[in-house]
Design a protein around this nucleic acid. Structure first.
Length: 240
DNA sequence: GCGACAG
DNA sequence: ATCTTGTCGC
């Protein structure tokens, strides 16, 4: 596919941080490129919604990434791609992107079409430095991205109502002035089931991020994009 | 210093 | 994320 690339991916990968301090500095630098002023594609837009995910085998130092493209209107799978690579960074809360992004970019590059929206497994704005993996992937590729996570990380939320589509704010209480800040939303995608945690990545607003997530979570708690990508990267890892 | 902590 | 069997339920 064609990567619009707000930031040159190749350049960024050559300068991949060697330690945690440099990784945080990279986040602080790239954060300025996040665009929060665009609504993003409408749910059901003409194009593809792409789910990305990775699976690890730390013992063999291997990470497998998958990108699965669904037709945004019908949710039918129209393309799939995988990539494998070395585990380039340890797991450190707040630095997850450095572990996943290089291989995810390889998988994305193998798709035939440019995604209209990328759905990540994790956070975007809901991050200690407001630059989670969805933001990071968005800035490197220039693509609209959102983050859908299974856990609230360090943030607080009051459980949303019990019905599908009910939401409540995801709050950061650790702000400098002590005033809670909404960094995302808890979204109930199935009646009576634990919510997912949605945050903005790049070039999509929170309302649309939630609308897309709900539309993609047709029958299960998680969006079909995430389910498909999770399944594919596991199969890819098992096949090595 | 201690505990918590997306995947 | 990953280590891991059976088991309860629709």
């Amino acid at each position: 596919m064609d990567i619009p690339g707000i930031i040159s991916c190749d350049d960024e990968l050559r300068h991949w941080p060697a330690d945690e301090a440099r990784a945080r500095a990279v986040q602080d630098r790239l954060r300025a490129h996040v665009r929060l002023d665009e609504p993003g594609p409408e749910p059901g837009f003409e194009g593809t919604v792409v789910g990305v995910d990775v699976a690890y085998d730390d013992a063999r130092d291997v990470v497998a990434a998958a990108a699965v493209a669904l037709d945004a209107r019908t949710l039918a799978v129209v393309d799939e791609a995988t990539a494998v690579g070395p585990v380039s960074f340890p797991y450190v809360p707040g630095l997850l992107a450095f572990r996943e992004i290089p291989t995810v970019l390889d998988a994305l590059a193998r798709l035939a079409r440019t995604p209209g929206l990328v759905v990540c497994d994790g956070y975007g704005l809901a991050h200690p430095r407001r630059f989670g993996l969805a933001s990071h992937l968005g800035v490197l590729t220039g693509l609209p991205t959102i983050g859908v996570a299974k856990n609230p990380f360090t943030f607080r939320y009051v459980p949303p109502g019990p019905e599908r589509g009910d939401t409540s704010p995801l709050l950061d209480d650790g702000t400098p002035r002590g005033e809670p800040e909404e960094v995302g939303r808890a979204l109930r995608t199935q009646r009576g089931v634990k919510p997912v945690f949605v945050s903005v990545g790049h070039r999509v607003d929170l309302d649309r991020a939630c609308a897309h997530t709900l539309r993609l979570a047709t029958s299960y708690r998680l969006p079909e994009t995430t389910r498909a990508a999770d399944s594919l990267c596991r199969r890819a890892l098992a096949g090595i």
